[in-house]
Design a protein around this nucleic acid. Structure first.
Lengths: 227, 227
DNA sequence: ACAAAAGTGTTGCCATTACACCCATGC
DNA sequence: GCATGGGTGTAATGGCAACACTTTTGT
């Protein structure tokens, strides 16, 4: 058997939530090398010899976009022989979530262009990255229903309406405000704070906070987060 | 940057269901090369340059065990730098399901020893394979609740009690026979045949068959398989 | 006073659960 | 006729969905 000539890469599908415009954002970079030079693509790159896959993702994200990731999870590994036109590259895709304060990119970092795109209005993408994104979207949409990952897209303290809007935006379906709150509060993993937030118009909203500790206890007892 | 020295492998966690003893079986091979020579391990090996990951899994399974796989799904990619004591090997793990007729191994194939083990009575395993198996078990247990993969472990035509026993065995919890059947039949994806099966003792059982076509139609319409 | 957003309870329905006896066959 | 496994219905409960008006603030 001949020597294996397969390169291993990682790619990151990073989502953010834009409270202002109630949109799901996706982080892309513009490639500055061939192939697909000057096209938009997912942040990512080859894995170094001594780093773990997660370290590789974080490093590439830092180098290419300056974004700090809040939640990272392995998505799927793409290994079709010709997904890269030059060499064989197998890529382990991750999906990540970032907080709203990351939404204004410090484009300063390094040379590459990095930008947020509205999830339903993406430019043409390099490689099979559109497919990867589709899978990531599917995953986040189903996962958000039975694990409390939505909070990773919000500020630590948030008005309940933010959470509600996040869910409607992500799932593209209407939610009954009363039922939604009832259900979430009944789990006992969200605490009501004594602070308020005023957005400029309308009645000020109480702020809430997700309690990770309570959530782990819930899980220990066989309880389930579920929307 | 120095040349990347990472090898890419695949491993397969293959489950079977033993009707006789109502046990979940796991397929293992005995390694005949270092490292971990003579230890039990998951079937798997390095990916060839021009084959897809799925092809690699099927090939290795065929070479090492002779088993024909009925369902194959990517599980997770394991990439910790030192999971293989010699070189860095990143492994894409798959989990597979086989039909009961595969359960009697044609051990004839090739030289390697391949054997079924009861899932709760495994020998010490090479590498991080125990961890991979744990994750696979978790996955199959949760997946069997909301996707009709249980049928992939049974004969095409099966008595309802087989399905019921498979679920109790897998999920380790009791099931009410009447409610279970009611629920499954109400989905309209299982057809009752006019054939009967007699196991030697007791009343003969009607045979049933999972109807893939109906299932896809159900899914199109937004319906859900769920136990 | 009006516009904008937040807050709040009750009712009906359907899905899930709990539960036990008779039936068909082989020996 | 007895042992073995298969087959079947009903009633109670609880979780989920549907539903609209009042409150607080800024302008």
């Amino acid at each position: 058997m001949t020597m294996q000539k397969i390169r291993l890469a990682v790619d990151a599908v990073v989502f953010g939530y834009d409270r202002q415009y109630t949109q799901i954002g996706l982080l892309l970079i513009k490639r500055k090398i061939e192939p697909f030079i000057n096209q938009w693509a997912l942040p990512g790159g080859l894995v170094h010899n001594e780093e773990s896959l997660e370290e590789a993702v974080s490093r590439e994200l830092q180098e290419e976009t300056g974004v700090t990731i809040n939640y990272l999870e392995q998505l799927y590994t793409f290994g079709t022989p010709n997904r890269d036109p030059r060499n064989r590259v197998v890529s382990v895709a991750y999906f990540g979530l970032v907080r709203p304060d990351m939404f204004t990119l410090h484009a300063s970092t390094d040379a590459l262009e990095a930008e947020w795109f509205e999830i339903h209005n993406l430019p043409p993408l390099a490689f099979d990255h559109q497919q990867i994104i589709d899978i990531a979207l599917e995953r986040i949409r189903s996962k958000v229903r039975y694990e409390p990952i939505g909070f990773e897209l919000l500020e630590e303290k948030f008005p309940f309406s933010d959470l509600e809007k996040l869910y409607t935006t992500l799932l593209q379906e209407d939610i009954d405000r009363r039922n939604f709150k009832k259900k979430l509060m009944s789990l006992g993993v969200i605490e009501e704070l004594q602070e308020h937030y005023t957005s400029g118009a309308g009645r000020p909203a109480k702020l809430y906070r997700f309690n990770r500790k309570e959530y782990f206890e819930l899980k220990e007892m066989g309880g389930n987060f579920s929307i």
